[in-house]
Amino acid sequence: MNVLGRILIIALAAALVIGGLLAFVPSNAAAGFADGRPDRQLTLDPAQASGTADQSTSAARPEFAGRERGGDHHEGGFGHIIRNAAIMTIIIALVAFGMRWLRRRRAVVWL
């Protein structure tokens, strides 16, 4: 029961976050997607191919203002793991050892 109660508190906290998210997000997201998600344009219109169309106002993908974002999911290969691990390592090196350094110099009293 004790554990269940704690899990319930965690769930409630998560529900609060999700509620807040829902309260914020759809209001501005709905404007761009009132008619649902636009179909992807797989081929170029003749006007686009000849370069006469204004790409920035192309209606094909209004969500990107005509800019191609590069496939739906080209992100997140193995390189991503290396990249993210590297970012974490840099943060740890800077913060953990930075704190140690500050403490040794007594530069920041409350550390």
Binding site: V25, E75, N84, I87, M88, T89, I90, I91, I92, L94, V95, A96, M99
Partner: peptide, 22 residues
């Protein structure tokens, strides 16, 4: 938002680990 929050998570968890490094 999913991708963005995940990138933020990398930074936050990096900080979380840094604070517990010892």
């Amino acid at each position: 938002l999913h991708g963005l929050a995940s990138d933020v998570g990398v930074v936050l968890i990096g900080l979380h680990l840094a604070l517990h490094w010892d």
